[in-house]
Nucleic acid binder design. Structure first.
Length: 588
RNA sequence: GGGGGCGUAGUGUAGGGGUUCAACAUGCCGGCCUGUCAAGCCGGAGAUCGCGGGUUCAAAUCCCGUCGCUCCCGCCA
């Protein structure tokens, strides 16, 4: 038997045709005489009927068949009797009357149902990922991912980009995340590293005159996992020569708009994407990846409360801290339990706690209300733009701490109030600082990476006031996710050496780690810049899921293990010998 | 590394010291049934409650430890 059609394909136009379908059995319905089953493949479902009068053999086989058996059905397409059509099925007007049924593979009862109805423990889903992938939502996600990548490739292909593959076995570089290392058999004691990103390679491609490069690149970082972080992940990595920041932003923005208009035309977009400076983002939302769907910007109330009788406020202000807060519209209905949950969340996030005020038509209700003057109460309501029925949430403390806490509180309140619509709230965050101070190690670190070009206006402060130098660096955020980031790169040897020196590399270390790049800059490196989009996150947002695991065929667990392949796993002593390694058990 | 959540028949859940505490749904096995489509009806099998220890006359239930999954912080240039 050979398959003639897919399971979602047959229509009344095929009536009378002899067809052969192959697929998985779903929902067998045995009426004794008539037996129905739904034959499923990735494309759809067709009802198959066995009638003992038509074929005793086919009927007998279908009696013995169970759910998820893989079968081939030969039969005739016929119209369903009046009143038995199923309008919920694309193939619902027809059915296939089986004349021959062949079991291609019998199936044991599945460890969990594939019908999407119940949520199943993720251990099982991961262990039997191939069964999980039979579920409609996972099928949708995988195909959405394929279409998204194709749309991005098509867009770049139409704009003179060329996809170039770069090595996965490459060199460990200092800074950044922990590398995944691969021992060398041929060079005892030496290691390849899996790339954290193709950053240096794509810069070398620019020196090589490629001009516009992209790659759907697998990247590896040996750090702890999150819902939006896997140790291996995929970036749409791109780089362009002879460009300014604006060129990169506008290319990426049109590419994303193209993608959304192609794949999700009903999702609302704000175009052009709003732009925030890094400072503005922190000031307004306490984070550099704000979810703009939520509204509720932060307001600084420090000046308003500096003289307050409320000790928490005055103490913090006296200690050079700040008081900031936001207004949760309509959340005056928060119960005591809700408020306690917010208190506890704020402490988890490192703050001392929150001060809440319920705004009513005759003032504010709050544990601290009687310690606030009428002017202070009015001032707060006005500054936070509150109306009766709203809840004000204030946090006092050091700026970093209250920003972290308010960011978390704002997102939590957003969830509680279901403020996140189906929009795709893209935004650019620009003007990142070039460097950040590492207080513990008492040295500067690159905010983005060491190859980021300082903004030209700030170049002269590189020696006098490094912390104030802004970078030509930009992030794309969407719905509270960091979707991608990029920068203009240093292409001048002297400047790169100066920056590496600021990052506490001795000339010898710089030469050892980045000599190949520095040397390349001597041989005609064009000005260049680029970007990288996190494909897993992008598809997760489009798919409407909370975790990138749902858009990765075989993801890893929180403990970085692959439950399907059971990796990582020990290897034989002979294998270790070959790569000159000995495993030393960790001392207890 | 730190904090939180979860773990009970194949699956999803209920039960929160004793006395229908091992239950419900679904799946599975068998039977009946000419039109179902999450088929229906009847019958049956299936869990020593993740694992180990402790408290107690008595533990699925309380305590400690451990393992696994998960969320957040740290970390992620």
């Amino acid at each position: 038997m050979r398959r003639t059609h897919r399971c979602g394909e047959l229509r009344p136009a095929h009536l009378g045709q002899q067809v052969t379908l192959m697929g998985w059995v779903r929902a067998r319905r045995d009426h004794g005489r008539l037996i129905f089953l739904d034959l499923w493949d990735h494309q759809g479902v067709t009802q198959v009927v066995a009638d003992p009068r038509a074929s005793a053999d086919a009927h007998g086989t279908m009696h013995a068949i169970r759910d998820e058996y893989v079968i081939a059905v030969q039969g005739v397409v016929r119209a369903r009797p009046k009143g038995t059509q199923n309008p919920e099925l694309a193939t619902g007007e027809i059915e296939v009357a089986a004349t021959a049924v062949e079991v291609l593979n019998a199936t044991a009862p599945l460890p969990f149902p594939t019908d999407d109805a119940d949520s199943v423990d993720e251990v099982l889903r991961m262990r039997y990922r191939y069964l999980d992938l039979r579920r409609a939502s996972m099928q949708r996600n995988l195909r959405l991912r394929h279409k998204a990548v194709k749309a991005l490739r098509d867009y770049l292909d139409g704009d003179d980009f060329v996809e170039v593959e770069t090595p996965v076995l490459t060199r460990s570089t200092p800074e950044g995340a922990r590398d995944y290392l691969v021992p060398s058999r041929i060079y005892p004691g030496s290691f390849y590293a899996l790339p954290q990103s193709p950053q240096q390679m794509k810069q070398l491609l620019m020196v090589g005159g490629v001009d516009r490069y992209y790659q759907v690149a697998r990247c590896f970082r040996d750090e702890d996992l999150r819902a939006d972080r896997q140790p291996e992940f995929t970036q749409l990595d791109l780089e362009m020569s002879f460009v300014e920041q604006e060129d990169v932003l506008s290319l990426v923005e049109s590419m994303m708009v193209h993608l959304v208009r192609t794949l999700a035309p009903d999702r609302r977009l704000t175009v052009p994407f709003p732009r925030l400076t890094h400072d503005e983002a922190l000031d307004l939302y306490g984070t550099d990846k704000p979810d703009l769907r939520l509204g509720m910007p932060l307001v600084d109330c420090t000046a308003l409360l500096g003289e307050s009788e409320v000790r928490i406020f005055s103490d913090v202000v006296a200690a050079d801290g700040r008081v900031k807060g936001f207004c949760a519209p309509g959340y005056g209905t928060a119960s005591t339990a809700d408020l306690e949950a917010l208190q506890s969340l704020s402490r988890t996030l490192g703050a001392e706690g929150i001060i809440w005020l319920q705004v009513t038509s005759h003032g504010v209700a709050s544990p601290v209300a009687r310690h606030l003057t009428p002017e202070e109460q009015r001032g707060l309501v006005e500054a936070l733009g509150a109306a009766p029925g709203d809840l004000l949430i204030l946090v006092a403390g050091a700026t970093d701490v209250i920003h972290g806490a308010l960011d978390g509180l704002r997102r939590d309140v957003g969830r509680r109030l279901s403020l996140a619509a189906a929009d795709l709230a893209f935004a650019w965050v620009v003007d990142f600082p070039l460097l950040k101070w590492d207080g513990e190690e008492r040295r500067w670190n690159a905010e983005h990476h060491p190859f980021t070009h300082p903004q030209p206006d700030d170049l002269d402060r590189l020696t006098t006031d490094p912390g104030s130098v802004r970078a030509s660096c930009y992030d794309l955020v969407c719905n509270g996710w960091e979707l991608g980031s990029g920068s203009l790169r240093v292409h001048e040897r002297a400047l790169q050496e100066q920056i590496l020196a600021l990052l506490a590399f001795t000339p010898e270390e710089a030469e050892a780690s980045f000599g190949h790049l520095l040397e390349a800059f001597d041989y005609g490196a064009p000005p260049h810049g680029g970007f990288a989009v996190g494909i897993d996150r992008l598809v997760a947002i489009l798919a409407g899921t909370d975790t990138i695991r749902d858009v990765i065929a075989f993801p890893k667990t929180r403990q970085a293990s692959d439950l399907t392949m059971r990796a990582p796993a020990p290897v034989t002593p002979a294998q270790l010998d070959e790569i000159h390694l000995r495993v030393v058990p960790r001392k207890a």
